[in-house]
Design a binder for these strands. Structure first.
Lengths: 155, 155
DNA sequence: AGTGAAAATACGCCGGT
DNA sequence: ACCGGCGTATTTTCACT
């Protein structure tokens, strides 16, 4: 992982559909060289995938919420995490050091969907209660820090 | 936005580097037809970008935390949001209906980085205090719901 | 909106340095 | 690790339906 790799990561995070030829021009190498480097980054598990970002509203998902999940005294965290994963509305699931054991982010079409998601979470085995915080507006999401110290790190 | 478009969205969310020829085979259209559809999805703002997913640890970011940001009585939310955006460690920023006004997710290399991020957030104009919840493990993140009702919706 | 054909480009492999 | 080059596949435009 040298500076060229970091430049490639930044370029692919900005535009995952860039061609190898474009990437090659950007980093000043030949296309085959870039091809090999990117292949190695994938093989090493550094690049874990390439994903199109879709505006959630355009799919009818206009609400999201953060939900703290509190466990009963005897609950097994991993078993609860598995059950949480089975709820489609849950987009993110973090095991946290706080009052609650998990914080999850749910994405739903409307208030009804939120109620359903909260009820689904509340009645899982091992869950004692939940505390929901409705997201009023997403200012930004999934923003990424440059892989290169050179490119501004802010503050 | 018909079922073909939704299939294309699913395919591109699974693999943003899929060729038009591959996508065409998947949906049963010609490559030029797919090319035009994807172009329209981009122009309509439905597809907002294509991003490589990079394992944060491989870039030296091994910690993250959720931070609730409380505002002073006179603070302007938008002004605070702008200042938050200038802090590089902040990956997500949600304006929420809760005790706190914002919840942000920060991604940092280590405890020192977390301390710095919290201090940066605390001393913004209009911020009265913060409440941090350290993420012990990310069970999953950025999981996506299928654009098609057909593909399993879970629970 | 979709197809098929054609030119430009890019991919992906190989040998050489 | 990188380069140049070659054959094949893909992209992207265009006329037509």
């Amino acid at each position: 992982m040298d500076s060229v790799d970091r430049a490639l990561l930044d370029a692919l995070r900005a535009n995952a559909r860039a061609t190898f030829a474009e990437l090659a021009r950007e980093v000043g190498l030949s296309a085959p060289a870039v091809h090999e480097r990117v292949g190695k980054l994938e093989a090493a598990g550094i690049i874990t995938g390439y994903h199109a970002a879709v505006a959630p509203e355009s799919l009818g998902y206009s609400m999201s919420a953060l939900v703290g999940v509190f466990l009963s005294d005897t609950a097994d965290e991993d078993a609860v995490a598995e059950q949480i994963a089975a709820i489609g509305a849950v987009e993110d699931c973090w095991f946290v050091a706080g009052e609650e054991s998990f914080v999850v982010k749910v994405r739903v079409p409307d208030i009804g969907g939120l109620e359903r998601a909260i009820r689904d979470l509340s009645k899982l085995d091992g869950v004692s209660r939940t505390r929901s915080t409705v997201v009023l507006s997403t200012r930004f999401e999934g923003r990424v820090q440059s892989a290169r110290p050179s490119a501004e790190n802010a503050l």
